[in-house]
């Protein structure tokens, strides 16, 4: 790890000020990706702005059918939240299966979404549930948020405050894990919403995205047989030593079918 200046602001405003002042500053939430990257000397920010002291980024609130989760809420807290379990059990389950207990007790929803790892779990849920990302500059639609591999719609000095989800009619997350890292080789989040079936897919491609072809098929007929007929674009899929593009394309359908079964 190279030397850096450490800041622990107490408010969102101070955090943004600290970032603007730094020559190459980075926010750190749980640090579950950033710290290993820095330890491997693959990242060397001039300033690290720790968001851990900002109370307004914490907490889970419910208003009607909408649940809002503070950006610095840990995966463990989301998994354990009675409110999340009641309104969005699929999201609680997703959070409870990220990484290992150490990761779940440090890693946060805001950090995960802002980092946008192509194999992270939360992006699939954000997309499928049509979540709203509340930031220091305003609101960003979940569909618009993930723009590319490790890229998001956030501006350099924009901070996620919270994420709001609306209770769907039914939802399920099915993840096929990388046997080594336990990240998603493919993760499919399926939600039955007032706007029809929505599907968020992670792991399969360089950036989490909506499964439009699958949604179209399932909106016509909500069945595993409908999924069978969908032709997946193999050439768009990731390929690595753990899974070929062809296999990933296949797994998207299998995970979707399992989510359909779970939502019947």
């Amino acid at each position: 790890m190279y030397d850096f200046n450490y800041h622990k602001p107490g408010s969102v405003d101070d955090a943004i000020k600290a970032l603007r002042k730094a020559s190459d500053g980075k926010f750190v939430a749980g640090g579950m990706t950033m710290l290993p990257t820095m330890k491997h000397r693959l990242a060397s920010p001039s300033d690290v702005i720790d968001l851990g002291g900002i109370k307004e980024l914490l907490g889970i609130t419910v208003k009607g059918d909408t649940i809002t989760i503070g950006a610095m809420t840990t995966h463990a807290a989301v998994a354990a939240s009675k409110d999340v379990q009641r309104l969005l059990p699929a999201l609680a389950k997703l959070a409870g299966n990220i990484g290992d207990p150490a990761v779940r007790n440090r890693g946060t929803i805001g950090g995960s979404i802002a980092n946008n790892d192509p194999a992270a779990d939360y992006p699939a849920a954000v997309i499928a549930l049509g979540a709203t990302i509340n930031t220091s500059k305003g609101e960003i639609d979940g569909d618009e948020f993930f723009t590319g591999m490790f890229e998001t719609a956030l501006a350099e000095d924009e901070l996620i405050i919270s994420v709001s989800f609306t209770k769907p009619k039914a939802a399920a997350y099915m993840k096929f894990e990388n046997p080594a890292s336990r990240y998603a080789i493919v993760g499919v989040f399926l939600a039955k919403t007032n706007d029809g079936v929505r599907i968020g897919i992670t792991g399969a491609t360089p950036c989490a995205h909506r499964g439009m072809r699958l949604e179209e098929a399932l909106n016509k007929e909500f069945s595993t047989a409908a999924v069978d007929k969908v032709i997946m674009p193999v050439d768009k899929m990731n390929a690595d030593i753990h899974a070929s593009a062809e296999y990933r394309a296949h797994l998207v359908k299998v995970m979707t079918q399992r989510a359909v079964e779970a939502c019947k």
Partner: peptide, 24 residues
Amino acid sequence: ALLEGCRYDSEGQLLTASFMDYAM
């Protein structure tokens, strides 16, 4: 039998050089 496969690429770079890629 099921998990551990140490892999090099054709240039001799170890592709499975961490527990993120080498499954114990």
